[in-house]
Design a binder for these strands. Sequence first.
DNA 1: CAGTGGTCTAGACCACAAT
DNA 2: TTGTGGTCTAGACCACTGG
Lengths: 252, 252
Amino acid sequence: MERGDTLDPLDRFTALPLYQQIKEEIASRIQGGRWSVGQKLPSENELVELLGVSRMTINRALRELTRDGLLVRVHGVGTFVAERRRHASLIQLRDIAEEIREAGKTHRLKVLELERVDADRELARAMALAVDSPVFRLVAVHYQDDVPVLYEDRIVNPALAPGFLDADFARMTATAYLVSIIVPDEMEHVVQAVLPEPRIAAALEIGRGEPCLKLSRRTFKDDDVVTSAALFYPGSRYSLGARYFTDDYRVR
Amino acid sequence: MERGDTLDPLDRFTALPLYQQIKEEIASRIQGGRWSVGQKLPSENELVELLGVSRMTINRALRELTRDGLLVRVHGVGTFVAERRRHASLIQLRDIAEEIREAGKTHRLKVLELERVDADRELARAMALAVDSPVFRLVAVHYQDDVPVLYEDRIVNPALAPGFLDADFARMTATAYLVSIIVPDEMEHVVQAVLPEPRIAAALEIGRGEPCLKLSRRTFKDDDVVTSAALFYPGSRYSLGARYFTDDYRVR
DNA sequence: CAGTGGTCTAGACCACAAT
DNA sequence: TTGTGGTCTAGACCACTGG
């Protein structure tokens, strides 16, 4: 404990749990700048003494703050104020069929292509496979009440989803199907605004001058690429959005 | 315990912590459909007996699965398989100045407007204030190595950030400033692809036909709107992206 | 080696909900 | 009243890190 500042006055008669009070005290010190980035916190045992609570209670507070991104813990070394207070917010992306149905509308899918192809250089790179490896490809358009709202161009790793070509995408979107087969352990997203290529503009029934949201998504399992998808949303008909609670100090 | 299925074979000699093994077993039952939505799980005490571990260990596993969105717990009632497995992914948005600096480039801000205005009907609605209420407005362009990459049009609630007009935005972006004043408890985001208005196209030094990402963001504190911002990213120069680990069973 | 965090236990008391 | 989850304790053993 390098600073001689008294810690906090825990209130044992309030409804607020002790671990919560500890979390708030520590978070407020970090957010107020009284504890700076990289600074080492008192050890669990020191906090036990300072606060007069059991180590399990301290441990829970520190563990949750770590999960919330405010702290970094290193086994055998100590607990530190996390770097880069990446004030970050998160946008949630949902399965489009689910979203359309929850809005009380009808979802329909038109499959344009569903086939096995050999990966060219660009595809091979996106899928982290060798050039000329066989992959599955799905090109489809999603309709909301018969209006096209999403153009999907997806490549799938056949080793991880061998039954993909036989799936019934009218019943279950490709995204949902793949998640039911393999729960990914990592994802990558990029959102861009683009003008659509002629083929995509035609499929979405929009003009070539109308901007589209392009969402590129890759999912991973054990460092293998499960699928790589390019999703095009016409700007005039669709927007990605989310409202959510920043529970506790979720900052990440 | 309504089902007579044996539970899991905990391995006490592996490196994997018991609570992790329990999490995985339960998650796999849910994802495999063997436990269906809304189904009640055995109580903590029942699981203590079934698995031969202490209640704190069970509690940790169930608590984390709840935080990950797979379970719902109701005090005094029980633990249930959560509804709507909204296969969702999250896109992380960061403070642009931080991102530019981390990429080793220079961030610069040009303030176009910084003033107090009276809210018209649309503004009042966005800010959840009365029409003609005074609000603060910031219009600015962010440059990366002298290339414009973001047009920001922001309204701020003067009751919550009275010193906003005097802030030094060259030192700290508006986002960072506001977060340092008030930690929001809720956020709302919408991403759209749009064609820029002439004024915005000019400020970003792009053609009118070039698509932009429009990110609309509102942040809330205790049901008051802290700020409402429209952020325009030229499609050719910027993309929002993130790669992250779907830690554990984070699916939400 | 000593100090750290990671995990686990076997109890305990409480607030809450259903009966 | 009974059973539930929410929290807390005072120990314990371990793996990891640093000197």
